[in-house]
Design a protein around this nucleic acid. Structure first.
Lengths: 143, 143
DNA sequence: CTTCTATTTGCAAACGATTTGCAATTGCAT
DNA sequence: ATGCAATTGCAAATCGTTTGCAAATAGAAG
């Protein structure tokens, strides 16, 4: 049987690269991130971390998120309403569809939309630094 | 000389419609909103309001924003980083380009992008309830 | 125009998410 | 092993926003 390879980012290497120390709390958090299939928020990461090492603090989770975001290893998403949610910066760019009933996040990608955005920005005399495209919806009733 | 008509929403009618009282603070805030050409946040609306009636409180600004949002008279935008910013819900749907240097907001509209979003959602088995498309950029250096 | 009451207000305190100061701990280069 | 800068946990601070409450007031009724 053939599985699609889901790349796991080598955070430790990235951190070493950035010249920061690999500490126990960080190792735990990195582990959680690398096998998170979802888009957890800081509190959720904290919960998972505490289950592994009860001495980890929420501050450290936040600090580590900021650090990883800084070196571009994760992306922070401020979806509507809730706290920021994080995702490993692995694979190529994509946008998000958020299930407003469950909070589930589905990733999608559209070259065409990206092109149109560039076009629009150019016409307005701007260069895009980054953008945010989020669709909020609910599962279509099966018919 | 001919000017494009910038429609001013009749908030008072909308409020009466909603069955709420037209109070002095509300009148002041509504006035500010109807001739705001920008996308002010609550604090900015508060400042402008205090300049007219120094007894108005920030709570009332927040409460009024919530009220107006509830009846669909204004839109709330949670652009990156800062507090929510508001805009009269007048005219047709549009998205926003935010100048990351100045905070200026430029409105744009793309039927094509809207269509593509619908298409994507449909393919994923979802119906879009609402969406958010924000371009963050800087003025292209004139060359 | 007064009377009445439910709605609205200002204030201060509470809130949720996130950040920070600080003293104690710990990686890790030597 | 040693030493010191980086990192931690904790509690307190921060920011934007909401809320409880007693006082003020819009506006319907007379």
């Amino acid at each position: 049987m053939n599985q699609t390879v889901i790349p796991k980012p080598d955070y430790e290497a990235a951190l070493r690269e950035a010249g920061v120390r690999i500490t126990r709390p960080r190792r735990v958090i990195l582990g959680i991130l690398s096998d998170a299939g979802d888009h957890p928020d800081a509190m959720e990461i904290f919960r998972r971390a505490v289950a592994i090492d009860s001495s980890i603090s929420l501050s450290t989770v936040y600090r580590t998120m900021k650090l990883l975001e800084g070196i571009g290893a994760i992306h922070r998403h401020a979806f509507e309403g809730g706290p920021s949610r994080f995702e490993p910066a692995v694979g190529d760019h994509h946008d998000h569809l958020i299930d407003i009933e469950t909070g589930d996040v589905i990733e999608f990608q559209s070259d065409r939309i990206e092109e149109l955005q560039q076009e629009i920005a150019r016409e307005l005399g701007y260069e895009i630094v980054h953008h945010r495209l989020e669709l909020y919806g609910r599962k279509r009733r099966r018919r």
